[in-house]
Every structure is written in structure tokens, then in C-alpha cells.
Design a protein around this nucleic acid. Sequence first.
DNA 1: CGCCGTATTGAGCGCTCTCAAGCTAGGTGG
DNA 2: CCACCTAGCTTGAGAGCGCTCAATACGGCG
Lengths: 235, 235
Amino acid sequence: MHKTNLTFTACIGCHFVPFCAAEDGKPAAAQHINFSVKRLLKLQRKQALYLPKNKLLSFYAIQEGALKTYQMEASGKELIRGFYFPGEILGYEAIATGHYLVSAVALTDTVICEIPYDNFLKRVHAKPELQKHSLYLISKQLNAGAYLALTSAEQRLAAFLIDLSKRLRPVEAPAVFNLPLSRQDIGNHLRLTAETISRLLSRLQRNKVLTITQKKLTILEAEKLQQLAEGLNEP
Amino acid sequence: MHKTNLTFTACIGCHFVPFCAAEDGKPAAAQHINFSVKRLLKLQRKQALYLPKNKLLSFYAIQEGALKTYQMEASGKELIRGFYFPGEILGYEAIATGHYLVSAVALTDTVICEIPYDNFLKRVHAKPELQKHSLYLISKQLNAGAYLALTSAEQRLAAFLIDLSKRLRPVEAPAVFNLPLSRQDIGNHLRLTAETISRLLSRLQRNKVLTITQKKLTILEAEKLQQLAEGLNEP
DNA sequence: CGCCGTATTGAGCGCTCTCAAGCTAGGTGG
DNA sequence: CCACCTAGCTTGAGAGCGCTCAATACGGCG
């Protein structure tokens, strides 16, 4: 059903690895599938991982694929709170209230590790150094999505793409990555319309800042993109 | 210098109380000033509590007053990340990187409890039930500022005022509270200009949704404000 | 009282949205 | 294999919301 060697590579860079390591300190990848804190889930595109008001039972670490979390505005608009990629973890926002606040849906076929909340707590309790790590992980979430605060559409999109490139390409490689998001999704996240996203991407291509064919995005001039994100486009 | 009975009342509703309680379980207020995890600070209006890049040494619980946290955009605009009021805690965002990411500045004369980070960790380590509480507190921050994601200026302002009224008036009382923020500060937080804030507040007064004289704000029709926040203003 | 920071209000502009019409790519069935 | 079909993307024209710039009013404080 599920290949073990795939699991090995999937764990590289996963923020949850410290929680999976066995008591004896052996590396996690060799055995974590059998370890009690984890369980594997497979989701198809558009399938929901959890829904708002569901009781918090587990956190979820992404092995392969991508998810979005979103809320519905009263007006019916889908307000995307965030995108999640391999190695990242969903569910922290549910700790405060005890239930999830958003819908989490797969953007592509996705493989996920489930970590029951109770096991997580027991594990942190047993190994005090994990306590610091858990604070670290949740704190990182506090700084996520800083680009949403920027004012102009171009600033937000540029900063968002830079953020994506860092998260999707942890090893320093040519700035090429797959963009598993529709224009509509990007717009619903950045509070812009799909048309505006499309226009901006077209302009960025005309200006040779990047190229985008289908889903494959290549950043040509990272510095220029950074300047746009900072609102320093020359008058 | 500092009256003890004032300290008593200040602790009511403070999220940090569980961390101050003595080992023997005695209530915190009776003794917490003497307890090692705390130290009192006084800040004057416009005085900084910490600056970006400062090393994370402590969290801070507000007893009296108010603070704002902000970053400077490259363009020089002040981007306010949040406002903090009595009982609320600053500094969590620094856990991930080990240093603060924003400037924290007093909006009025302010009294603050300082909690050294090391003591905090020791304390959580010593009392496992505090571990859950610390996760709870940081998780709550993940859901803060949800109004920032709303699209129209009126929606954001309405939702922001509702949020403020809940935080400044924890006991159910007439919806009257002091607004220790300038139009400019509100605008810098909601990504709007001071002029837009002023115009919106004027319109809300014309429509009898609220009144505002100087710094005193009274919500007259909470339901209508809620509808505006949801974008349900009738066409 | 006079000063200075803050708030209000107006006029005009520009960015982003809305609405609408093609266009492209990928999937399906004959 | 190709015609079709559909969902997503691109591009255009016009409207509206929020911004800029500017003048005036207010209010706290010396």
C-alpha cells in the first residue's frame, strides 16, 4: 500500500520529526511508521481533512501534496487562511478553543501523518525538551502570512511568491517550483480577485521578473521581486 | 511607588495568573509580586518595551494601560501588528527566532509584569498542567486579528471595534469603552488611512450605530455593527 | 491665550473590482 | 484521432472604493 522508502524522504525537513523519535534516540525515519503517535492518511484532491467545529483530535503533518485552510464569509466568499506543504503541520489553531476553526482541504492528492493530540501531549510531557520545540513550532505560526499585511496588490503577491519559494524549495536550487494553486485560490488568500492575480502575473512576465507556464513558476530576478514586495518600485 | 491593592485588581482576568500561583496552590494575587517569576515595569506614553532584534528575555503581561506592536515597512510606513490591553501578554512571537520581531511601545502610561523566559520554561517544566495552558495561550494568538482578512474598509473597522469591545470590557456592561488609539494608529493597523477611519466613524455616527466623543466610544447598535462586519449592509 | 498635534471634511485621482468576452489546456466520448 | 466540453486563465472597458493632497476645525497644554 505505502512504500517505506517514500516515507524516508518525506520525513526529511518535517517539523514533527522530534516528536516521532523513539525513546532510545534512534532516528525517527527508520521506524516512525510503527510508532504509536502516527498514522498515515491519504486524501484526494478536494477532499476535506477536517471541518470547522470538528473537535480537536489530532495534528496533521504533510508528507506529500498540499492543503488549504479556509473559512466562509457571511457573503459566501471563501477566505483562505493559509496553504500547507510537505513538512508543515496543521491544527494548532484548534488548541485554544478545542475545535478546529477552519476547513482544511487537499489541493492535490496528499499523504498525511496523523498525530493524535493526546499522544502529542503525553510525548511532550515525557520529554521536556519537546516542550520547547512545541512552543517553537506554534510560535512560528504567529509569524506566518506576514505578507497579508502589505498594502498594494503587487506587494502582497510578490511577498507571497517569495514566501512560497522558500517553503517549497528548502534546498537552495534554481528558483523553480510547482504552483499547485489556482489564481482564484491565490486571490482568495491575498484578498484580491483572480483577474487581478492574472494581470499581475502577466505584468511580472512582461517585465522579465518571472515566467509561468501552466503550473511551473520560475523566478528570474529574485532581487527585483523582493523590491516589489517592499514597495520600492521606481516611479 | 506602587499600591498593592491596585495589583490585586490588575490580576483579575490576567492570562498569566496560573504561572504566578505558588507551589502550594495559594491564590496568586496575595503574593505574586514577591514571587520570583515576576517584576514590575512602568512605561510612559511612547516609551518602548522592546525593539526588533532584541534578544528574547521575557514575556510581558499588561496590568494597566495599552501598547502597540509594529514594524516599519521599507517605505517608512508604520505597520501595526496588534494592540495589547490589561491581562494580555506580549512576546510570544519571539520564541521561534529567539529575538523579538516588532517594536512594542506604550500608548498610554502603562504598568507591566515582566516574566523572564527562563523562569517561564522552568515553571512550565515543574508543573505539567501549565504546559497545556501555555499552548492554549499561544494558540489563542493564532486566531487574533482575524478581522484583518476582511475585504472592505467598513467590514474591517466594524469587526475591529467589536473585537476591541470584547477585550476592553470583559464583564458584560454597557458597550462603552475608552479608545486609547489615534485614527492614525487604527489606520496603520487596518491598512487604511487616518482619513478613511475618520470618514467611516463619522458615517457610523450619522447612522446611529455608535457615538464617539474624544476617546470615549459607545456602541449603540451592536447587531448592526456585527452585520456591517459581515458585509451584510443592505443594498 | 496661542500653539501644535489630531481630527474632520472636500475634491480629484488611481488601483482594484465587476462584468463580460475570448482563449487555453486537459479530459471525454464518438 | 479528433471534436467537443468544461474549468481555468487572460484581457478589456467601465465603475467605485479608498488614497492623496489640502484646507479647516478642534482640543489639550504650555
